[in-house]
Each structure stands twice: as C-alpha cells, then as structure tokens.
C-alpha cells in the first residue's frame, strides 16, 4: 500500500526527513511515533501529496506521489491536525462538498454523508455551524470528512491531540472499528504513547528524520527494555545485600534497586518470599511493565515526554505501575 525509498525532505537548511524506507502492507494499522519535530508530519505530508520530497520516491496506493498526484489523492483519505470542516460551514454541507470533490454525484454524496453522520454519531449537530461544535464533535466530523469516499488508505495526523481522555478513547474506538469493518489501511502519527500502544500492531519510531525502530509494541518493549521490579529499602546496605543475591540484571541507586527481568509480574511474589527468607524485606515494591516511552528512552537517551510533546492537564498516565504495599 505504501512503499518509500530513501524519502527525504529538507526545509532550507533543516533536514526534516532523512532517507526513510518504509513498506506498509494492505490492512495494516501503523503508528508513527516520535517527539514533535521528529519528521512524522513531514513524512505524512509527502505521502499525502501536500509537499514534494526533496529526494527519494514514494508510491502510495500504487501511484507515485509526485508523478501521479491525482491518482494518489483519489485513493487516500487524510485527516490533518486541524479541522477539515470550515468553521463557517455546516457539517453536512461540508461532507457533501467533500464527496463531490471526489467526483461523487450530489445524491450519492448526500446519501454517504447521512450514513457517516449516523455512524459517527453526529446526527444532532450535523446541521449546525461547525464553529458551534465541541472539540470532540469537530474531530468526529473531520473523521467523517476523511472517509466520505471510502478510501482504501487513511492517514491521520495526530488525531487525538487536544481531546480529553474520554473523547480520545471514543475516537480510537471509531478508528479500530473502521478498520475491522472495511479493512482500511491506516497510518497515524501520534506522540501519545498509550495511543500507539493500544491501537497499532506496528509502531515505527521516528527521531531526527529517521526510522530508529519498527516492530509490534510488545516486541519493541521486550527487545529494548523488558519488565522491571523496583524495590525500595529502608537502608542502602539492605539494597546492596539484595543486589548481591538476585540472579537477574539489576541497577542500584541508593536505597532503590531496579531488577530487569522478563515476566516480572509473575516472578514478583516468589521474589518477595525470597526477600523475607533472607530477612531483607523491602519497604516498597513496584512492578513496571515496559512502555514505549522506555523504548524511546533506551533508543535515544531522551524521554518522549520531555521531547516537547504538549500534554493536556487531563492526560492519563502512560504507565500504570502496580504498587504493592508490603
């Protein structure tokens, strides 16, 4: 569905994308993950014909993004970071115009608009001016706009940025359903780690305009980080004593001992038994599953969260540590 070869884009002296080789098969749901400025959106803009590459090639839905722009445009849907529907228009009007832009007859566009309004739960607001809609409603309308022509390939650029957790979950559900029902190939960019983790079967980590990892979330986490058990002790000497006895990889920092071991949630009870038997019970225990942020940290030495990603106040945590009081 997508095939790029050394896809590159420079803006004046900034190398936004530096030689991306990417293959996406039909039916895949792929997340491009990376901090702001990593080159995700620039990559997406090249794949959607918005900007031409500086060098390299890209074939999208069977056609070259430079030589056959219109062929590509007919076959893809695009939901950008902004609102697809103009604020001065009514939602239904915009949906019908959008359908006609893809060459649909008015009656056909009207029928399809009604269908999408129904399935995206926009019935109550479709005939209101877009500027009066809430953020979540506008985003659902944007999704409907991108789907009007039932594209075989759908691009979403930061689809849930600015939405509250409830609307994000709702949006993610719509995207997953869409794929289950129509087999649409979906490529989305995100800097929400939990979103990439929850939705995508394949995560492509991009940093400084290059792909630095490409795998399922589970394998990325196993391979690059693994699970950890974090033990807190009352005294540094206890931590050191335990460190000398555990048969796993560890890292000690003062009274805190971090043990890296696959299958940590299953092993933790046994470990606690051992610690009691040794007379070195910990004051605190935390089991931490690897997150994609850990993967990113491991790969780049930087945290994605510090990478300038704007996070709203209502944001949920990406890690849900299992705290066990002993």
């Amino acid at each position: 569905m997508i095939e790029t070869h050394e896809l590159t884009r420079h803006f004046k002296d900034v190398q936004a994308v530096r030689g991306i080789n990417l293959t996406v098969a039909p039916g895949e749901l792929v997340a491009l993950l990376g901090p702001n400025g990593a080159g995700k959106s620039t990559t997406l803009r090249m794949l959607t014909t918005l900007i031409p590459p500086t060098s390299g090639t890209a074939k999208v839905a069977g056609h070259d993004v430079v030589r056959a722009q219109r062929e590509v445009r007919y076959r893809i849907g695009y939901i950008g970071q902004g609102n697809g529907a103009a604020h001065s228009q009514r939602g239904r009007d915009e949906l019908i115009s959008q359908g006609r832009a893809y060459g649909m007859k008015v009656t056909e566009a009207r029928r399809r608009a009604a269908e999408l309004i129904e399935s995206l739960d926009l019935g109550a607001v479709a005939d209101r001016t877009v500027s009066t809609l809430s953020g979540g409603q506008r985003r659902r309308l944007d999704i409907a706009m991108g789907l009007i022509h039932a594209p075989e390939l759908l691009f979403l650029d930061e689809p849930s940025t600015g939405l509250d957790p409830q609307n994000r979950a709702n949006l993610q559900q719509h995207i997953v359903e869409l794929r289950e029902r129509y087999g649409t190939t979906i490529v989305l960019t995100t800097h929400y780690l939990d979103e990439a983790d929850a939705m995508a079967e394949r995560v492509i980590v991009i940093d400084h305009g290059r792909i630095i990892a490409d795998d399922t979330p589970a394998r990325l986490k196993d391979e690059h980080v693994g699970d950890r058990i974090i033990l807190g002790f009352a005294h540094e000497s206890d931590a050191a004593a335990v460190a000398s006895r555990v048969p796993h990889k560890f890292h000690r920092s003062g009274t805190e001992l971090t043990i890296s071991v696959p299958g940590a949630p299953r092993l933790v009870t046994g470990l606690l038994d051992d610690l009691r038997a040794w007379g070195l019970p910990p004051a605190e225990v935390e089991v931490r599953r690897a997150t994609l942020d850990d993967v990113f940290l491991q790969l780049t030495g930087r945290s994605l969260r510090e990478g300038g990603a704007a996070r709203s106040a209502g944001d949920t945590e990406d890690t849900e540590p299992a705290l066990v009081e002993v």
Partner: peptide, 20 residues
C-alpha cells in the same frame, strides 16, 4: 481573509488533499 482562516483552521489543507 476567509481563505486565511481556512488555512489556519485546516480546511484548506483538507481540500488540497482532495483530487480537486
């Protein structure tokens, strides 16, 4: 200014991706 507003809100970009 109408177009300017649509450039800022994103609907111009959406139209650029259509085959129009």
């Amino acid at each position: 200014s109408n177009l300017l507003f649509e450039i800022q809100t994103g609907s111009h970009e959406r139209m650029l991706v259509t085959p129009l």
